[in-house]
Amino acid sequence: MTDARSPKITTVIVDDEPLARSNLAVLLRRDPTIDIAAECGSGVEAPAVIRRAKPDLLFLDVQMPECDGFDVLELLGKDLPPAIIFTTAYDQYALRAFEAGALDYLLKPFDDARFALALERARQKIAVSRDAPRRLERLTIKSAGQIVFLKLSEIDWIEAADYYACLHVGQRTHMLRRSIVDLEQDLDPSAFCRIHRSTIVNLDRIAGLSVTEDGGYDVVLHNDIRLRLSRSYRRQLEDRMGIRNTCAP
């Protein structure tokens, strides 16, 4: 039995079908602990709506024109709600949904009992998340018709590419539809460091520093990749690496 005195669960519904949004809203309004903060019919608009509402729970459709459910997750970064429930008429996306961090996967049409089970799972996860702040651990990337779930710890370095971030992982490269400035806000500063206006490096991948012909420094990675160290970011790198006076003033 739901306790009406429980903290409200702020919820956002994203689905391009008005009837689907309406049906979900009807079911949710039966529960006095649910507060529907917003409804959105466009995947393109969804990230801004979700960031504004800061929901505990997100109902997210998979198949939407222009920007689907996985695109929304890619654009949200660490702003993902604690509980995400995918809703779709297509069962082939279930595995990808769970790999992307979804709590549940409601296959349309679903009955009241199945919906109640998903909502109870969300309630339990939200209760836990309120005592433990979330930290971004992986990224959802769509590329060439594929969906990649990339752990941040696997990234060697990150390069700015206009409004995209180019993620270098071993011999592979992935393009993320977020700017390097935006992505930097999501990264753990104890693990990643900006070394140039267009470069972020995984500190665990650094093998050393190398003096350049012009008296500057390159950051040398374990795979022998050399990345230019900007003077304006040098002190920051020294602080993160726990070293001092390594480079000449």
Rank of each mutant, 00 (worst) to 15 (best):
A144M: 10
T140K: 00
Y90A: 07
L117F: 10
R123A: 10
A144G: 01
L103T: 12
L117T: 13
I141R: 00
E66K: 09
F115K: 15
E74H: 08
D71C: 15
E120L: 12
G145L: 04
P81L: 03
L95H: 10
A113R: 15
R96Q: 15
D131C: 12
A100G: 15
I84F: 01
S129C: 09
E74I: 03
A94R: 12
A161T: 05
L150Q: 01
I147N: 08
Y90E: 02
E66W: 12
F115S: 14
G77I: 07
K108C: 05
L117C: 00
P109N: 04
T88L: 08
F115G: 14
I126E: 02
K125I: 05
L80M: 10
E159D: 09
R134K: 14
D71Y: 14
L103A: 11
G69N: 01
Q92G: 04
E159F: 07
R135Y: 03
T140P: 03
E120I: 07
D162R: 15
R134P: 09
L80N: 11
P65A: 04
A100T: 02
F86H: 12
Y93L: 09
D61A: 15
F70Q: 07
I126R: 06
A127K: 14
F70T: 05
A102R: 08
R130N: 10
C67V: 07
Q124I: 07
R130E: 11
V128K: 13
A122L: 00
Y93A: 10
L106M: 06
L95E: 09
I84S: 05
R134Y: 08
D112C: 10
R134M: 12
D131Y: 03
L103D: 08
T88P: 06
V72M: 06
T87C: 14
A100C: 08
G145K: 02
A132Y: 12
D61H: 15
S129T: 00
K142A: 04
L152H: 09
R121W: 07
R114A: 09
E120W: 09
L58N: 02
R123L: 04
A122M: 02
T140I: 11
F59L: 05
R96M: 13
F149K: 05
L139D: 02
K78T: 04
L76N: 10
F149N: 05
T88V: 06
Q124L: 13
E120N: 15
T88F: 05
D111S: 05
